[in-house]
Design a protein around this nucleic acid. Sequence first.
DNA 1: TAATAAAGTTAGTTTAATCTAACTTTTAAT
DNA 2: ATTAAAAGTTAGATTAAACTAACTTTATTA
Lengths: 220, 220
Amino acid sequence: MLSIAEENYIKRLVYLSLENGAGDGVGTNELATGLQVKPSTANDMLKKLRQKELIDYEKYGKIHLTELGTKIGMEIIRKHRLWETFLYEKLEFTWDEVHEVAEQLEHIQSEKLVEKLDKFLGFPKFDPHGDPIPNQAGEMQLLAKKMLAAVNVGEQCKMVAVKDNSAVFLNYVVELGLGINNQIEVLSKQDFDDSMEIRINGKTNRVSKKFAQNIYVIAD
Amino acid sequence: MLSIAEENYIKRLVYLSLENGAGDGVGTNELATGLQVKPSTANDMLKKLRQKELIDYEKYGKIHLTELGTKIGMEIIRKHRLWETFLYEKLEFTWDEVHEVAEQLEHIQSEKLVEKLDKFLGFPKFDPHGDPIPNQAGEMQLLAKKMLAAVNVGEQCKMVAVKDNSAVFLNYVVELGLGINNQIEVLSKQDFDDSMEIRINGKTNRVSKKFAQNIYVIAD
DNA sequence: TAATAAAGTTAGTTTAATCTAACTTTTAAT
DNA sequence: ATTAAAAGTTAGATTAAACTAACTTTATTA
Ligand SMILES: [Mn+2]
Ligand SMILES: [Mn+2]
Ligand SMILES: [Mn+2]
Ligand SMILES: [Mn+2]
């Protein structure tokens, strides 16, 4: 059984592995930054995770999750997203509040709890942020989504997820009248700073490049 | 904010204080035994809890929770019993399964979560074992219950709670066809070993003294 | 009341997870 | 091809929570 610290390292490795893409592996400093610890701390943990056969890793090399490590990581992400869905759907939490509490709940150890919770929620496929929920086998439904920043002027799209999960970002999204499954039309782009004008439910707003890089959409 | 270890010490102190009764205080060894640690370990923690003003305690003296310590302890018990109720009422857990998972869930830190959970469950007054759930102020509805072992021959009573929460005991209770709110009639008592014959829904069974000391009833 | 037992404390050790400071290896730039 | 910067590692220290072994205090009992 893994400690909460070990679980957090594994989870972070899953995210960084996905970000870095196919087989590239993850660096020690990158991992440390993601977990807000010093590289030396991460380095110590890497030895432990290797010992437990959760990662492939050799001195000065890149970190790769083993099959076992990936499986365990997906289970943690499954729990996190199921709990977020529970808080949002059943307990009236807002989507900017769920992440913080799910960070704690994801470490509760009980297989039965996860499966019963999944059933209770009606086997949801996506969490409140539009992120796919892995099934019991660790598989999840990936949408062919792209960033709002990549949508061309004049095109319509539909928001399916957010990248940033921070309360400050999510509250801004709500302030703009935007939510999952809402339509967005890109009216113009400013070459100078890559800001764009978008129309949401008839209302027009100018948003920054940074903003547009944190909204996921699909063509519509 | 308290660590999980600290919370477990406080919770155990609440239970032992209640058991020992009014103002008697709790001993170091007793506390250590309850938490399955060595007395020296408990002793170290006592210094920390005193430092944090959660207990009154001096060398070789008895341990007393402060008002703050009691308040925090009741909050943990409130969370434990609310989670047990959630698992039982909403997720189809059986009453012998809920305690173990609630031992983990009781340490989740989120006031909002507790209050929303309470509301979601319809502000329950008792958990699946018949134990009263403290309200937000830390108060709970105490029943004037007594042990089945104390019921006289020929009398009827109603089971309101169990003392032992272990799966092995709870499964035995179910096997006997017994549950919360069931009527029990005491048919006879054996002076030799204090075993008794009881009738539950028309069926007669002989139960041991130990058993009868773990069932709480009220007159009926 | 003196001896013995029980209860409680202290000192020193261990493990997990973190840190800082110093060092080594790899990568990037001149 | 050197050199400087970035990335990664090692050594040693710290903190929390546990332990064992030895000691002290309090309670019990002969
Ligand atoms: Mn989240
Ligand atoms: Mn999410
Ligand atoms: Mn319980
Ligand atoms: Mn209970």
